[in-house]
C-alpha cells in the first residue's frame, strides 16, 4: 500500500491514542448497537433495515461505508443525521444527539440523488444556505466554492436546468460552505463521469487534509480503495467486517517474492506467491539457486475481492 496512507494511519493512531487519554467519547460519530425496523402494511409486518450495528468514525479519518444495495447504508446515515429515529441503540456525534443545533453546525451532508427547489440558482441557494447556517461568507467566496466543484459558469443558472451530476456538484458545494468538521457523503459520485469523480476525490482529499473527518458511503470500490483509511462493510443490515484498509486488503498468509532469474535474457523480475509456511523455504531455495531476491511483500487483495467475500459470507 502507499506510503502516504501508512504515515496517515500512524498519525491517526497517535491522535486516537491521545484522544482516548483526553476524552474517549468525543469521536465524531459513534454508533452503538443501532437497530432500525420499518413497519410495513399497516404495521402488520416489519423489515429490519439495520441490525445491531456498532462502529465509530475517528477524528480526521476517511471511513468508507460499503455494502450491497439494501444493506442499510442510507438508513444508517439517516439515523446519524437524525432524519430517522433508531428503533433501539444509540447514535452520538461528538457525544451529542444527532439533531442538536450545535452538531448540525459542524457537519456537511452530501445526499444520494440530491434535489433542490429548482426555481433558484446555485448562488441564490448558497446565499440562503449560508444565511440559514449563520455563516459570514462573501459572494466571491461562494463563487469560489462553486468553482471548486466545477460550477463557476453555472452560478446564475436555475437548478431546473441542471443534470443529476450538476446537482451533485451543487450539493457538495453546499456541504463545503461551512468548512465542516465532519463530511457525510452518501453515494456522492453515483451520477458523475470519470473526470468529475476524480475532481470529487481531490476535493475529498483536500478537505481531509484540512482536518475534516469524512464518512463516505459508496458503491465504487475503486474510489474507496484509493482514498479511504478504514472501511466498514455491511450486508443485510449487519456489519460483516471493519478495519484499516491495509489490514482488510492484506491476505492473511500469502506473500509475493520478487526476484531476478540468474542468467535470464532480460532483467525483468519474476514474482512468486507463497504461503507464510513456505516463505522461508522458498527464499532459501531461490538463494541457493543464485537468484537475486528483490522484494518480499504481503499479497494484497482488491477491495472488490474483500467486499464480495465479506458480503457473501466468505463463500467466495
Amino acid at each position: 500500500m502507499n506510503i502516504a496512507r501508512l504515515v496517515k494511519n500512524i498519525k491517526l493512531a497517535i491522535v486516537e491514542k491521545d484522544g482516548k487519554e483526553s476524552n474517549m467519547t468525543d469521536v465524531p460519530v459513534k454508533v452503538d448497537n443501532l437497530e432500525k425496523t420499518f413497519r410495513k402494511s399497516l404495521g402488520f409486518s416489519s423489515f429490519k433495515a439495520v441490525d445491531s450495528l456498532s462502529f465509530q468514525v475517528n477524528n480526521g479519518e476517511i471511513l468508507g461505508f460499503l455494502g450491497p444495495n439494501g444493506a442499510g447504508k442510507t438508513t444508517t446515515i439517516k439515523c446519524i443525521l437524525g432524519l430517522l429515529k433508531p428503533t433501539s441503540g444509540n447514535v452520538l456525534l461528538w457525544n451529542d444527539f444527532p439533531a442538536s443545533g450545535s452538531v448540525r453546525m459542524r457537519i456537511g451532508y452530501v445526499p444520494e440523488n440530491p434535489d433542490y427547489e429548482d426555481i433558484f440558482t446555485p448562488l441564490e441557494f448558497m446565499t440562503m444556505f449560508s444565511s440559514m447556517r449563520k455563516l459570514d461568507i462573501s459572494k466571491d467566496q461562494m463563487i469560489s466554492i462553486l468553482g471548486r466543484v466545477g460550477l463557476e459558469e453555472w452560478v446564475n443558472v436555475r437548478i431546473r436546468n441542471f443534470s443529476k451530476g450538476m446537482k451533485q456538484r451543487m450539493s457538495l458545494s453546499l456541504a463545503l460552505q461551512s468548512k465542516p468538521e465532519l463530511l457525510i457523503m452518501d453515494e456522492p459520485t453515483g451520477g458523475l463521469d470519470p473526470a468529475a469523480r476524480k475532481e470529487f476525490r481531490d476535493v475529498i482529499l483536500e478537505e481531509n487534509s484540512r482536518g475534516a473527518t469524512i464518512f463516505l458511503s459508496s458503491h465504487l470500490l475503486s474510489e474507496v480503495e484509493t482514498i479511504c483509511d478504514r472501511a466498514v462493510i455491511l450486508a443485510k443490515g449487519k456489519k460483516v467486517t471493519e478495519g484499516n484498509l491495509d489490514d482488510l486488503l492484506r491476505t492473511e498468509d500469502m506473500f509475493s517474492i520478487s526476484f531476478t532469474v540468474h542468467g535470464a535474457e532480460t532483467d525483468m523480475p519474476e514474482n512468486k506467491k507463497v504461503t507464510s509456511a513456505d516463505l522461508q523455504k522458498t527464499i532459501d531455495e531461490l538463494r541457493k539457486n543464485g537468484q537475486n531476491i528483490l522484494e518480499v511483500k504481503p499479497v494484497y487483495r482488491s477491495l472488490e475481492e474483500v467486499f464480495l467475500s465479506a458480503t457473501s459470507g466468505g463463500k467466495l
Binding site: 456537511g108 451532508y109 440530491p114 444556505f129 440559514m132 447556517r133 453546499l174
Partner: peptide
C-alpha cells in the same frame, strides 16, 4: 416526495425551523 426536505433538515434547519 421530491426529497428536498432531506438536505434542509439534515443540516441547516431543525424541524421546528
Amino acid at each position: 416526495e421530491q426529497k428536498t426536505v432531506m438536505p434542509l433538515i439534515a443540516v441547516p434547519l431543525s424541524r421546528g425551523q
